[in-house]
Amino acid sequence: MDAAVRELSYAQAIQEAMAIAMDMDERVFLMGEDIGVYGGAFQVTGDLVERYGTDRVIDTPISELGGAGVAVGAAVTGMRPIFEFQFSDFATLGMEQIVNQAAKMRFMLGGEVSVPVVMRFPAGSGTGAAAQHSQSLEAWLGHVPGLKVIQPVTPHDAKGMLLAAIADPDPVMIFEHKLLYKMKGHVPEGHYTVPIGKAEIRREGRDLTIVATSIMVQKALDAAAALEGEGIDIEVVDLRTIRPIDRQTIIDSVKKTSRLLCVYEAVKTLGIGAEVSALVAESEAFDYLDAPIVRLGGAETPIPYNPDLEKATVPQVPDIITAARDLVKGVR
């Protein structure tokens, strides 16, 4: 197969990044629940334990708080741990170590240590796993100075941003939407990085800017394609990093299109859409707006089990199409 068009799934891309990092650097190792012979709950670590052994692919007890703390302790003493939370919902169990320790240790100690830990969080709804295994909690962590929080959406970015995260001296939290794991895309061979803190314009357009995160980028692109036939030309910005946020790319895009729609899966209120809206409203792009900013986010409810209810909880392509069309046509 031509290397230039080599395709991997999102999960395979992450696994490849971890293998490359472990080959390059003895200090890199993996920790998490059932990431060894089981291969991880979503088969992201796969057979890595066979290649790197149980010293570098460590099955932890079901101890998210302790496990996160061990990863932090290893990171400040010279190792490069990658800690997998089995589901992002379980961040709630490790929050103390993430928020009070990993995020603040360098600051509290006046720069005397670095905390180069990577934590991976399989996130999001759509798997029928109900309220405690389907949440999108990235904004919680995005609120904490000291952390970096990323949401790659393509296999290419999943690999490149993970390699950037491993090389980063500060703690990086990666939210991986579970429905992306099987999606395929072009992934270059070998080592490369995709910078943290830079948004990517996935599609250029003149009439409306959609700033989307994670799997909503795919849905926004589908909506944009559908509206093309109606003569509506949509720009889709893949935010990729929610802390530190790429203000300039958003502002420049809104200045060009004069309309902004934010689309994200997490609960709408106090979410990333509020931040994006506010930063546009505070910027020079405000004067360019021809219409009120619109947010499409998750419903104000836990994620339900019933598949129809579950779909109705988060924005779907038809919702984005309607919101985008109304916004461009001035329907309030």
């Binding site: 302790g66 061990v70 932090v72 302790g73 290893a74 990171a75 400040v76 170590q97």
Partner: peptide
């Protein structure tokens, strides 16, 4: 847990 991580290192 941080001490345990340091011991792991």
């Amino acid at each position: 847990p941080i001490a345990v991580g340091a011991a792991l290192s």
